[in-house]
C-alpha cells in the first residue's frame, strides 16, 4: 500500500518536468507489446502508460469511457476490433505519410495502420496425414473422406470469423453456408482457441485444424534461429517456446495461392479521438512500423511484417511470396462481422 502513492507522486513529478506521456490501450499479449514500448521509451524519452486486456474488454471499456477516456492509442490484436472501433466513431484520421508506409493491407478508411500480418493455414499431424492427401482449396476440405471426424476449427475465434467473412465476400453467401454445413456434417470439432486445438491434435483427437500460422510456428519452438543475421544487441532472445510435449506432431499446410484458406489478416493500431496529443500518438505508430519494431514482431511473435526489408526466420515463407498468397479482396469487405455472426448462428455454430 505504501508504494502506490509514491509511484503516483513520482509520476506526477516526472509528468510536470516532462509533459510527454502517452496512454496506450493494447489488446495484444503483454509480452509482445512491452519490449517494443520499453525500447520506444528509451529511444524517444516519451513515457508510456500501458493498459492491456483482450480485444472485447478494451473495446467495451473505450466505449464506456466515451469522451472521458484517458487513452491516446488503441493497439489491437485483430482488424475486426479496429473496424468495430471505426464503426463506433472512436478513431482519428491518420496522415497519408503514415498510411503509405505499410506495403499493403491499409484500410480505405485511413483510420488505422496495419502492424503485422498473419495467415490462415491448415495445421496437420504429419504422422497421420501426408500433404498430398490434402486439398488445394479449403473449400474441398469437408469432402476428404479420410478427414471425417478428424478436423478441428475455432468458430468463436476472431480470425476464424474474419476468414468466414472473406469467404462470404469471395464465394457468396450460399456457398459459405453450404461449406459450413458440409464441415459440420464432416464432424468438425469446435475448440475454444488455437492452442487448445493444437493440443487436441497432439493428443490424437483430430488430424488437421484450421489455424493462424504463428501458433504452429510457436509450437515448433523456433529455437533454430540460424537464419538470423542481425546485430547482436538487436537480437531478441527469442524462444517463446511452448508445450514441448506437443512439439512433435504438427506441421503447416498452405492452401494454394489465392485460396480463401490462405487469407491474410492483420493486427493494427490507431489514434483515438480522445487523444489530446495526436501528433505524439502518430509518432508511436510510426515507431511500430520501423524496422526495429517490425523485426521484433517477426522474431518474437512469428507474424509477418507489413514493411519490406525485414529478415524472416527460415520457418516463415519469404515476404514476397507471402504478400501474394492471400486472395485478392477489397479489404473493406472484411468488416461485415455482423453478417458472419448471423450466418454462424443460422447454422448453429454460435
Amino acid at each position: 500500500m505504501k508504494r502506490f502513492p509514491l509511484a503516483l507522486l513520482a509520476a506526477l513529478v516526472i509528468g510536470a518536468v516532462q509533459a510527454q506521456s502517452l496512454t496506450i490501450y493494447a489488446s495484444r499479449g503483454e509480452g509482445l507489446v512491452q519490449p517494443i514500448i520499453k525500447q520506444f521509451e528509451k529511444d524517444t524519452g516519451i513515457q508510456v502508460k500501458l493498459r492491456f486486456g483482450p480485444d472485447a474488454e478494451i473495446l467495451a471499456a473505450l466505449q464506456e469511457e466515451g469522451s472521458r477516456s484517458p487513452a491516446d492509442l488503441f493497439w489491437a490484436n485483430s482488424s475486426g476490433s479496429l473496424e468495430a472501433a471505426t464503426k463506433a466513431g472512436l478513431l482519428l484520421k491518420l496522415p497519408p505519410e503514415l498510411l503509405s508506409r505499410p506495403s499493403e493491407f491499409v484500410p480505405s478508411s485511413g483510420l488505422w495502420v496495419p502492424v503485422s500480418v498473419r495467415f490462415r493455414v491448415l495445421a496437420y499431424n504429419p504422422s497421420k496425414i501426408k500433404p498430398s492427401e490434402l486439398p488445394a482449396s479449403v473449400m474441398d476440405l469437408p469432402q476428404i473422406a479420410k478427414l471425417k471426424g478428424r478436423i478441428g476449427w475455432t468458430p468463436t475465434y476472431s480470425s476464424f470469423q474474419d476468414f468466414i467473412t472473406a469467404m462470404r465476400a469471395l464465394k457468396g453467401e450460399a456457398a459459405t453456408k453450404a461449406w459450413l454445413l458440409a464441415m459440420k456434417a464432416a464432424g468438425a470439432k469446435a475448440y475454444a482457441n488455437n492452442p487448445a486445438m493444437l493440443d487436441a491434435m497432439r493428443a490424437g483427437e483430430i488430424d488437421v485444424g484450421l489455424s493462424n500460422h504463428y501458433y504452429i510456428q510457436r509450437l515448433l519452438a523456433g529455437i533454430q534461429e540460424g537464419e538470423y543475421e542481425g546485430k547482436e544487441e538487436d537480437q531478441v532472445k527469442t524462444p517463446t517456446s511452448s508445450n514441448p510435449a506437443a512439439k512433435a506432431n504438427v506441421a503447416t499446410y498452405y492452401f494454394s495461392k489465392g485460396d480463401v484458406g490462405s487469407l491474410a489478416l492483420v493486427t493494427g493500431a490507431a489514434v483515438l479521438k480522445t487523444s489530446k496529443q495526436p501528433a505524439l500518438a502518430e509518432k508511436f505508430l510510426n515507431y511500430l512500423l520501423e524496422a526495429k519494431s517490425q523485426q521484433f514482431t517477426v522474431d518474437q511473435v512469428r507474424e509477418y511484417p507489413v514493411v519490406s526489408g525485414i529478415k524472416l526466420p527460415a520457418s516463415l515463407l519469404p515476404f514476397t511470396e507471402v504478400v501474394g498468397r492471400s486472395p485478392k479482396l477489397d479489404f473493406s469487405k472484411l468488416t461485415d462481422l455482423d453478417g458472419t455472426l448471423k450466418l454462424l448462428r443460422e447454422v448453429g455454430l454460435l
Partner: peptide, 23 residues
C-alpha cells in the same frame, strides 16, 4: 483489466497475457 490503474500487472493478468499468446 478494466479497473486497475494503467500499467498495473497482476500475476493473473501476466498469466493471461502469456497463455493467450501460447507462450
Amino acid at each position: 483489466f478494466l479497473l486497475a490503474p494503467v500499467g498495473y500487472d497482476t500475476l493473473a493478468t501476466r498469466i493471461w497475457s502469456y497463455t493467450s499468446e501460447a507462450v
